[in-house]
Design a protein around this nucleic acid. Sequence first.
RNA 1: GGCGAUAUCGUCUAAGGGUUAGGACGUGGCCCUCUCAAGGCCAAAAUCCGGGUUCGAAUCCCGGUAUCGCUACCA
Length: 516
Amino acid sequence: MPGSAKLSCFQFQASRKVSCAKKMASTTQSSGPRVRFAPSPTGYLHVGGARTALFNWLFARHEGGTFILRVEDTDVERNRPELVDGILNSLRWLGLDWDEGPMFQSQRLELYRAAAEKLLAAGAAYLCYCSAERYAGGDAAEAAEPGDAPHAPRRVTRCPCRDSKPVPGDQKPAIRFRVALGATTAFDDAVFGHQEVVNEEIEDFVLLRSPKDPGAEVGLPTYQLGAVVDDIDMRITHVIRGADHLSNTPKQVLLYRALGAPVPIFAHVPLILGPDRKRLSKRHGATSVSSYQDEGFLPEAFRNFLCLLGWSSGDDSEYLRTDELLKRFSLAGVSRSNAVFDRAKLEWYNTQYLQLLPVDELLPAVQGELERAGIWRAEWADGDREWFRRTVDLLRPRTRLLPDFSHWARAFFSDTFDYDPQAKEKFWKDERLPAMLGRLADSLAAVTDWSHDPCEHALRGIAEAEGVKAGLLINATRVAIVGQAVAPPLFETMVVLGQSRVVERLKRVLPALAVR
RNA sequence: GGCGAUAUCGUCUAAGGGUUAGGACGUGGCCCUCUCAAGGCCAAAAUCCGGGUUCGAAUCCCGGUAUCGCUACCA
């Protein structure tokens, strides 16, 4: 059996790597748990992956451990290296910072090959010359059209190469793990509890693929080998990942044992589903983190929402800021059943954060949005910062997503804005309005102390003189100065816009009104 | 087909043998009001089915069903 001699290779590798990665922070080496997030660059970071990353990150931070990032890019067919940056950016946007990595499996191939060779030498693995088709044996029916050809019950197929001395065929061999029969494999999952399977149910899974490249001696590692070898090498103590791996875990437990390494603690987290309770996929619309970023969600809101999908603090808290999350997070709170991704609730979280966040924390996000819209002005960052702050504060109870600041609230930041036809239709009906608004413009122009009450007095005075309800004039004025039916209370809006702008916009609108 | 996992309002979840089964989103109503939000109040809304164990079961056990996952030289 492989002893500590086998392990020493990994220990050496591990310590070398760590000392390299940590050469700057050489002071206090954390002794807490070590966890990792290991995406593969076959797409953008999707919400399921993001939540897995979040749980890992929360666990690491809560426990004072280390969060490691590893890119699992061993599938050359589906791999898209250019996607890595996007994944890293999404993690950064979510505020999930990592302590080590990103490591790339494609750059660590020798490690996996060495491990496979050792297993081979120890008899824990064997060479398999079968093509994938031949290995699958009589199971070709599986590829047939669904609906017909019911499956024949079968046990896991064992490759003929396993026992007989294999005859090399025309293709180079893959290396398969030799699952020991007549035993069971068990582990305790931190979320799903004790798991046990009889080894007969575990197929002799591939460790190293047969080389595609005619020149290559050995092939690329499969997920099972790569993940286990790396988790050993990186001294991962807790493997927190999606529940789709629960059924694979016994294979990995077998691998840890065969490699003479301690088995980490596994914690599988339930999957995220679409509204139809199918696994969340593109069919359900936006599934990538970046698309939510683009839509104008706040990362903290998104994080809060994601965290409460499949995890509960145990009490009734819904609104949990990051420090609160960090304080409370534990694997014990992770649910065992899959959760439906509920966009409406996500939006609710966003409105909550838009309103409850200290304004100053919101300003950079709003600035970013205005920049995107091309209406940001540099003076709002320094001289007029207080004005900007007040305006954002005034607007935010009515915002749901960041683009609201540059869409319906555009008139607060720019002099070029559109008038909503429905708003005009609704509030510019009365034929007395042109005259009243003209008078209001004059009256407002004469105000000396431009603030809430004088504005209100001016308007109500005119409404009274004309014998109309103040509301009529208020609503018409709102449309005139911001182009929208939806906006903050009128007199606060006036104060924020400033006297000259309000008067100018009222006058500008008069001709159009008179025509009606 | 085999193996595994899961099952509480439409959705996210709380209640680890004794509660009128709680909260949140969403939905409906009312209040507030200058539009629209926000906010406040109220309402409807659930223990998958069947057996056990127990004085007592959402909770423990068994069976069924449904759903999800794995069953790849994907991860």
